[in-house]
Design a protein around this nucleic acid. Structure first.
Length: 804
RNA sequence: GGGCGGUUAGCUCAGCUGGUAGAGCGCCUGCCUUACACGCAGGUGGCCGCAGGUUCGAGUCCUGCACCGCCCACCA
């Protein structure tokens, strides 16, 4: 064992060994019947590991390893998401770069090409999880486009169809003109944009004058079928019920009154374009206005006389028309937020189109109930409330996408117009028997299949042994923005299909920001590849650092925290060297004969309890801190220093117990820093098994009475080191430990006794002041007052020793 | 426009049900003490965002304010 711990070779070796020996597999090392299950949030097949993955991977691995050591039948289920729009986007861009296009190659070839590409370059993340030391059951990797998985998705859809919860409706949706598909509200990203606000006069059809409306999109006026004002707006009371003429197209449209109009904004009169604006769509519907489509699926104009023009070209033509006639009252700069596609950043085009919808009322209700009853708990608590609210307010789910990469919707229409949904694909129409069936070309929303992840990965809808054993699972770890997209949908899907929630706890992780507080993003150049710190400092150090900074709020990335982890690994490595060098031929055995031995056993048990408590609360940061101080302060600086000379002297009790104590320390640290602990473990004498499946330390309060035994020694050490004054200690053992740890004969500097006296005088003054306050003595709890008296006593005693 | 969170040592952050401020890093001073200089010991450093209130006592509870984030939202 070299003095400097080098994680590079060690970590890879253990990662390969654990996996090769089947210790990552479901059920490895199980010693009890209970299961503990986590499904990895399936990353995009095309993606790479980022800090968020590394953090949530570290959290999940700590929980999995901890439960595995406790003997649970653990399963950490891995896999990938096909990520419909995202993957299609990547492949489409490749085609464009090659001078062709999706449309040109056709659907079948496009899908084939996507598969080819994934075979070659997809699925990189699981390799990176391996490098993190994530003890995932890699042999069970699933993909949402696997045949078996497809069958689950199709069955889910058919079940919903049979309940009558799937319907088709022509509504206004968020349309991405680049991908030419509908996307959900949740996939729209709002960004600030500088635009121009135009004020345009719409003359009354009868009589003089007109209404001035404000718009940033003149081209949409081609689709105007009304003008709306607020019913209580006195400025326009005279106009309601009359008609105005839409410029350019010279169409007569009614002026309607609607409360959705904001009188304060613009001119207080709004043009109504039901075909291209969500609010206008509703106003139009409620006032029986016509819906005209003037912009096509590709974002270009389809209005008469404007066919094929871009919107900007149409804008210019319309503005010129208006200016010629003096109908353009003004133009002013205007900054507002516009919806963009989160994948390609195209400006979203609200369009009316026929889509498949899933009713949410009956589907969502059991999930809301489960959350209220806390059968599923989100952590932190604020996210629990958010999850409930999101479900309560969830609009019907648009499940169709006009993409090619994904699960094609299992709905067929026969020649007589009957629709049937079934899986496997039906031979004939259920109503008329016709065999001429045509399948709906749309695919399902990616999240539709993700919703099934905890079930489909275990073989649902088949009654597999795995499903029986591992469903429902226990914990899910993910980011905040995924709650509505994924978490809630897994919950209602699990309840609908299986009658049970898929897990009991959802951990919402921090977003890791760059060190300067900005988001980590590729485009900003602020992203840091987790493989960097892993290569530089080790996976153990990286896990430690990420968990140390983790919190319930957003956190800034910190190399310092990772370096701290590296130091901890090195410290552990060296104290193990100390013990191992002095214990050749010795068996680990708990035989405490001296105070420092009983004390460290008590400290180890106290830390065990504290760590269990923190991990149970999913407070990974607190657990990290406990383990750090246990190792550095208790184990190395006090216990090891105190026992060192006895090890050198060949004290058998000291040697056996040192090995036993080291074993416990390694076990406690293993879930957090698996590699260095397993490596040291392998150097312990007569290793039969691996630490990864070794038993988690049992509670042991045999020496709890010694927990405070070193307090006096430590205080005496502080006084001596500060002042050079030696405090008399009662007890032979205490004196021995003091000498062994402090080694007063080596004290070089004399210490500043006067400074120490001054500090004590200040403390005494403060304590006396408090105790002189009769209201404090009367009202404060007895133990607080008592504590203050005790402190005062101690300060006075120490001052006396310093020869005040 | 709603909702949530934050503001504590130079930096990054802990501080649970109120008891008189902590950690790591940084900086300064000693130490190459036969496990570790990726170490040991000691030290410097804080009107706990601002203003009120409750209390014997307030980073900790209440009210208001000021900044800073994040999420959500149909203001043309």
């Amino acid at each position: 064992m070299e003095p400097l711990y080098d994680p590079a070779g060690v970590e890879r070796r253990w990662q390969e060994t654990w996996e090769a020996e089947g210790l990552y597999g479901a059920g490895a090392g199980r010693r009890r019947d209970q299961s503990f299950v986590i499904c990895i949030p399936p990353p995009n097949v095309t993606g790479e590991l980022h800090m968020g993955h590394a953090l949530n991977g570290a959290m999940q691995d700590v929980l999995i390893r901890w439960h595995r050591m406790q003997g649970f039948d653990t399963l950490w289920q891995p896999g990938y998401d096909h990520a419909g729009i995202s993957t299609q986007n990547v492949v489409e861009k490749q085609l464009v770069a090659e001078g062709t296009s999706r449309q040109e190659v056709g659907r079948e070839a496009f899908v084939e090409r996507t598969w080819d590409w994934l075979e070659r370059t997809g699925r990189t993340i699981m390799g990176q999880y391996r490098r993190l030391g994530a003890s995932v059951d890699y042999s069970r990797e699933r993909f949402t486009m696997d045949d078996e998985y497809v069958r689950s998705v199709m069955t889910f859809f058919v079940r919903l169809w049979e309940r009558g919860w799937i319907y088709r409706a022509n509504r206004i949706v968020n349309w991405c003109p680049y991908h030419e598909t509908a996307i959900s509200d949740l996939e729209v990203e709002h960004v600030e944009k500088d635009d121009t606000l135009y004020r345009i006069v719409y003359p009354f059809a009868e009589g003089d004058g007109g209404l001035t409306i404000a718009t940033v999109r003149p081209s949409t006026l081609l689709g105007d079928t009304g003008v709306a004002v607020h019913p209580d707006d006195p400025r326009y009371a005279h106009a309601v019920g009359r008609e105005v003429i839409v410029p350019v197209v010279e169409r007569r449209v009614p002026v309607v009154a609607d409360v959705r109009v904001e009188p304060e904004f613009g001119t207080g009169a709004v043009k109504v374009t039901p075909g291209h604006d969500p609010m206008d769509f509703e106003i139009g519907r409620d006032h029986a206005l016509q819906t005209l489509t003037v912009i096509g699926p590709d974002g270009r104009m389809v209005a008469d006389g404007f066919e094929g023009l871009t919107q900007q070209e149409a804008d210019e033509r319309i503005l010129a028309w208006l200016e010629e006639r003096g109908r353009l009252e003004s133009r002013e700069p205007y900054r507002h937020s516009v919806g963009t596609c989160e994948r390609c950043h195209s400006r979203i085009e609200p369009l009316v189109s026929p889509q498949w919808w899933c009713r949410m009322d009956e589907l969502g209700a059991p999930a809301i109930e489960a959350l209220r009853e806390r059968r599923v708990r989100f952590h932190p608590e604020s996210q629990h409330r958010f999850a409930i609210e999101s479900l309560e307010q969830a609009p019907d789910w648009c499940v169709s996408r006009q993409l090619w990469w994904g699960h094609q919707i299992p709905v067929w229409t026969c020649e007589n117009g009957h629709q049937v949904s079934a899986w496997p694909p039906p031979e004939a129409c259920a109503q008329c028997g016709s065999g001429a069936l045509e399948r709906d070309p749309d695919v399902l929303d990616t999240w539709f299949s993700s919703a099934l992840w905890p079930l489909a990965t275990l073989g649902w809808p088949d009654e597999t042994p795995e499903l029986d054993r591992y469903y429902p699972g226990d914990v899910n770890v993910t980011a905040r923005e995924i709650i509505r997209l994924w978490e809630n949908r897994m919950i209602f899907s699990g309840l609908f299909l299986r009658g049970e929630v898929p897990f009991t706890d959802v951990i919402i992780t921090s977003t890791i920001l760059a060190a300067d507080g900005r988001r980590m993003s590729k485009s900003l150049g602020t992203g840091i590849d987790p493989m960097e710190p892993i290569e530089a400092h080790g996976a153990d150090a990286t896990r430690y650092g990420l968990l140390k900074i983790s919190s319930t709020q957003d956190v800034r990335y910190s190399v310092g925290a990772i370096e701290e982890g590296r130091k901890l690994a090195n410290k552990l490595w060296n104290v193990a060297r100390l013990i191992l060098q002095q214990t050749e031929g010795v068996e680990p055995e708990t035989r405490p004969s001296a105070l420092e031995e009983r004390w460290i056993l008590a400290r180890l048990d106290a830390a065990r309890a504290a760590v269990e408590e923190a991990w149970s609360r999913f407070d990974f940061s607190a657990a990290t801190s406990v383990l750090y101080h246990l190792t550095f302060d208790d184990f190395c600086d006090w216990y090891a220093e105190a026992v060192k000379s006895r090890l050198y002297d060949g004290d058998d009790d000291a040697r056996s117990t040192a090995l036993a104590a080291l074993e416990r320390l390694l076990a406690l640290l293993h879930p957090l820093m698996p590699h260095v602990t397993e490596e040291i473990w392998s150097h312990l004498p007569d290793r039969r098994g691996r630490l990864i499946v070794a038993a988690w330390p049992e509670p042991d309060d045999a020496h709890a009475d010694t927990l405070t035994a070193l307090d006096r020694v430590q205080e005496a050490a502080r006084v001596f080191r500060r002042s050079g004054v030696r405090v008399e200690l009662e007890g032979e053992e205490e004196q021995r430990i003091f000498s062994a740890v402090v080694r007063p004969e080596r004290q070089s500097a004399a210490g500043d006794a006067e400074a120490e006296r001054e500090r004590l005088r200040t403390e005494i003054g403060r304590a006396e002041g408090m105790l002189a306050n009769e209201r404090f003595v009367a009202n404060a709890p007895a133990e607080v007052v008592e504590g203050e008296r005790a402190k005062l006593e101690r300060y006075r005693r120490e001052l006396e020793l310093l020869g005040a």
